[in-house]
Design a binder for these strands. Structure first.
Lengths: 147, 147
DNA sequence: AGGTGATTGCGACTCAGTCTCATGTGCGTT
DNA sequence: AACGCACATGAGACTGAGTCGCAATCACCT
């Protein structure tokens, strides 16, 4: 039986074990539209009467991060969260600060900006983090009823 | 006596108390070139045989953050750190991943990028975080001896 | 079906950050 | 110079995220 869940499928492709814990995590992530914290996963697993060791959650999340199936983001509050993402090319995430939904957005042309920063500072920049926070279309509609 | 330390001076200007703890913190920050964590501050205070309550450190750092005299950054490792910065216009920080030094870099022209992201996603973006990590000129020289 | 190395769950642990509260003190007022 | 009080501090208990070690389990290859 082929795996409907893309994360589970990717695990198989990578020669990693498709254990119940990992399947359950993949399921939870697939259901979730936006970002989620490790604690969310733990709570959801508990709710679904499936216990999942705290360590397992962190280990699996870590694994998926290394596989680039999820990405870790730092919320403005300082919390660490994760968002699912296709292991495509370079991209960024836009997070809704109201409902938590997250949307991928492709490469935005940051290269010239990074070059400008390198020129200004003399650093050689090799990593960057760009996170965008705002209101998603739905929440916008909800809070700005009148144009 | 006017305050040599800009942070202490800013406190006075804002009508906030210039307490010994805040002065000590300001001093530590002024001495430090790069980013630092709350734990660094605690350790430094302890080393200088001046105890400073853990809570006080967090409270003061919080205060300075609200005053925009320091900014909180999230290191790639997930740790939270702070960097001093002049409360000027919008700017970003470039952090050296080897020695920890941080350098301010002015507005880099992110606006068009944000507009592009808004157009692509339909979000209204109101906050963003851009952090750049790399090697500062000195560390670059140290690790790339030959051109 | 069997063997085995990867994976799990548990629980103890660490470490960052928060909270409470009694004590202390900067500073405006007198 | 002394006063008074709201603001600030330090100590330490507490919380919650994340890690570690280990014995038991199980996914998967043969």
């Amino acid at each position: 039986m082929t795996d409907a869940n893309p994360i589970v499928a990717a695990l198989g492709r990578a020669g990693l074990r498709r254990t119940p814990a990992r399947r359950a995590l993949a399921e939870l992530i697939a259901q979730r539209e936006g970002h989620f914290t490790a604690e969310d996963v733990l709570a959801a697993a508990r709710r679904g009467r499936r216990t999942m060791g705290r360590a397992t959650v962190f280990r699996s999340l870590d694994l998926l991060t290394r596989m680039r199936l999820v990405e870790r983001v730092d919320l403005p509050s300082g919390e660490h969260a994760y968002v699912a993402c296709l292991p495509s090319t370079h991209h960024h995430h836009v997070l809704c600060s109201r409902c938590g939904r997250s949307t991928d957005v492709g490469e935005l042309g940051l290269t010239p900006i990074i070059e400008r920063a390198e020129a200004q500072t003399g650093y050689r920049i090799d990593t960057h983090r760009l996170e965008l926070f705002g209101l998603c279309p739905d929440c916008r509609a909800a809070t700005e009823p009148a144009i």
